[in-house]
């Protein structure tokens, strides 16, 4: 811009140069401010697509665990997604702890996937990490897969008793949500 303007100046009017630069700077500044304003104006347009306040309000729930016997599991809803809460039996805990963690696709121990002092409570999303199906294994008589945990019927992912991926296409273990035991029989999820 500046050079073009400069070329147009008739020869012999050098003193004008400073003024020209100042005027160019004004133009550049105006365009820049307008550009920044335009970009900032886009932010709310993009942000409106994020989860809204009423959706976020449901992001944490309380669950009463008193009625779940060892060996039983319940399915509940959290953030409109299904959730498994499973009361592991002693055998299932032993079985999960007997696995050599280093050989797993997503190496985690049962202790890392449960809360301290509540190692029998396995709380995971009931959403297969492959393509988002709901695995079987929580209901009575459902197929628990080859490793006694959960089995995803869509593409055949097998999860073990710590809900770790053992076989099939899923890349990671079933996700453990953030939760906190508020008492021995109540847990707040989210």
């Amino acid at each position: 811009m500046a050079t073009e303007d400069h070329v147009e100046q008739p020869a012999g009017e050098q003193p004008e140069q400073e003024g020209v630069r100042r005027r160019d700077f004004l133009n550049i500044a105006a365009v820049s401010v307008a550009g920044v304003g335009g970009v900032i104006a886009i932010l709310p347009l993009v942000n409106q697509m994020n989860p809204s306040a009423d959706v976020l309000a449901l992001s944490s729930i309380q669950v009463d665990l008193a009625n779940i016997e060892p060996g039983q599991a319940v399915k509940t809803i959290w953030r409109k997604q299904p959730l498994f809460i499973r009361n592991l039996t002693a055998e299932e805990i032993t079985e999960a702890n007997a696995v050599d963690v280093s050989g797993l696709r997503d190496p985690e121990t049962l202790a890392e996937r449960t809360a301290e002092g509540h190692e029998n409570w396995l709380i995971t999303l009931a959403v297969c990490t492959h393509l988002g199906c709901v695995p079987l294994g929580a209901g009575q008589g459902e197929n628990k897969g080859e490793y006694g945990g959960y089995f995803c019927p869509c593409h055949g992912s097998h999860y073990d008793t710590a809900a770790r991926i053992r076989k099939g296409p899923a890349p990671t273990n079933l996700v453990v949500p953030e939760y906190e035991f508020t008492s021995d029989t109540t847990v707040t999820i989210g």
Binding site: M49, N50, P51, S52, V55, S59, R79, K80, Q81
Partner: peptide
């Protein structure tokens, strides 16, 4: 962001 929630829903 695409779904406007944690699973497909009204949004």
């Amino acid at each position: 962001w695409l779904l406007g929630g944690f699973a497909p829903d009204n949004a």
